[in-house]
C-alpha cells in the first residue's frame, strides 16, 4: 500500500509519484496498471497518442500556407492594379481566379466530402466565377447565357447518375442531390427576370433537373419521400 504523507492520501500501487503534489513516493510501481502508459511507441518509433495530433498539425500548416499565399497574392494584385490603373480592373480577373482556385483546392481536392457535395460546391463556385468574368467583359454574355446552364446541367446529370448507380451511397448523396436539383431551375428563373438572353440552354438545365428528380420519384418513391421527410423535419 502506497501513501503520500504530504497529501494524506493512499495511492494506487501503479503510481510512482503523487498526482496531487507531484512528489515521488516510495516503492516500485506494480506492473498491473490502472490506465494505459500513454508514452508507448509503435514500430516506427512514433508516439501512439500523437498520431492524430501530428496529422492535424500537418493539415493545419498546409492550410495556413494556402491562406497566407492567397492573402499575399491578392494584396500584390490590388496594389499593382491600383498603381498602374488606367481604367482597366484587370485585378478582378486575378482575384476571382485565385479565389475560385483556392475554393476548389480546399473544398474539392483536399476535402473529405462525399462526391455529390463536391460536385454541388464546384458547380456553385464555377457558376459564380463565370458570372464575375462575364460581368467584367463588356458586351459579352456567353458565359452567363451558355456557361452557367451547361455547368448546372452537367452537375445535375452527374449527381443523378451517381444517385442511380451508387445505391450503397444513396443516403449520403441524396441531401446534396436535392439542393443541386433545385439549382438546375435557376437559369430559367434568370431568363424570366431578363438576366439570361438565350432560352434553350436554360430549358435544357430545367428539363434535366425535372427528369432526374422525376426518375427518383418513379423508381424509389417511398424511399425518396421518407428521406425528404427526414431531411426537411423542423
Amino acid at each position: 500500500m502506497k501513501n503520500c504523507k504530504r497529501c494524506s492520501v493512499e495511492l494506487d500501487d501503479a503510481l510512482t509519484r503523487c498526482p496531487l503534489c507531484q512528489q515521488p513516493v516510495e516503492g516500485e510501481a506494480i506492473e498491473e496498471r490502472t490506465f494505459p502508459l500513454y508514452g508507448q511507441r509503435n514500430e516506427k518509433g512514433e508516439l501512439i497518442e500523437d498520431h492524430d495530433h501530428k496529422a492535424r498539425h500537418r493539415k493545419r500548416r498546409l492550410q495556413n500556407n494556402f491562406v497566407f499565399g492567397t492573402i499575399l497574392l491578392l494584396s500584390v494584385t490590388i496594389v499593382m492594379n491600383a498603381m498602374t490603373f488606367n481604367g482597366d480592373y484587370w485585378g478582378v480577373y486575378v482575384i476571382s481566379s485565385v479565389l475560385y482556385l483556392w475554393f476548389s483546392v480546399k473544398h474539392t481536392i483536399l476535402s473529405n466530402n462525399r462526391a455529390c457535395r463536391k460536385i454541388l460546391l464546384q458547380a456553385v463556385s464555377l457558376s459564380v466565377f463565370l458570372a464575375v468574368i462575364d460581368v467584367m467583359i463588356p458586351d459579352f454574355h456567353s458565359l452567363i447565357d451558355y456557361g452557367i446552364p451547361v455547368v448546372l446541367t452537367a452537375a445535375v446529370g452527374v449527381e443523378g447518375m451517381l444517385l442511380h448507380f451508387r445505391k450503397s451511397r444513396w443516403k449520403s448523396y441524396v441531401r446534396d442531390f436535392f439542393v443541386m436539383d433545385l439549382l438546375g431551375y435557376i437559369p430559367i428563373l434568370l431568363f424570366v427576370v431578363g438576366i439570361i438572353d438565350v432560352l434553350w440552354p436554360s430549358v435544357v438545365a430545367a428539363m434535366v433537373s425535372f427528369l432526374t428528380i422525376s426518375s427518383q420519384f418513379a423508381f424509389s418513391f417511398k424511399r425518396f419521400k421518407d428521406e425528404l421527410r427526414r431531411l426537411l423535419h423542423h
Partner: peptide
C-alpha cells in the same frame, strides 16, 4: 480538493490517476 477531504475532514481517500500530466 482532495487534501481538503483527507486532511481537514479526515476522510480516507485512495487516489488513482491516468497520469496524462506526467506523459
Amino acid at each position: 480538493f482532495f487534501r481538503g477531504l483527507s486532511k481537514e475532514d479526515g476522510i480516507h481517500v485512495k487516489i488513482y490517476s491516468n497520469e496524462w500530466e506526467a506523459f
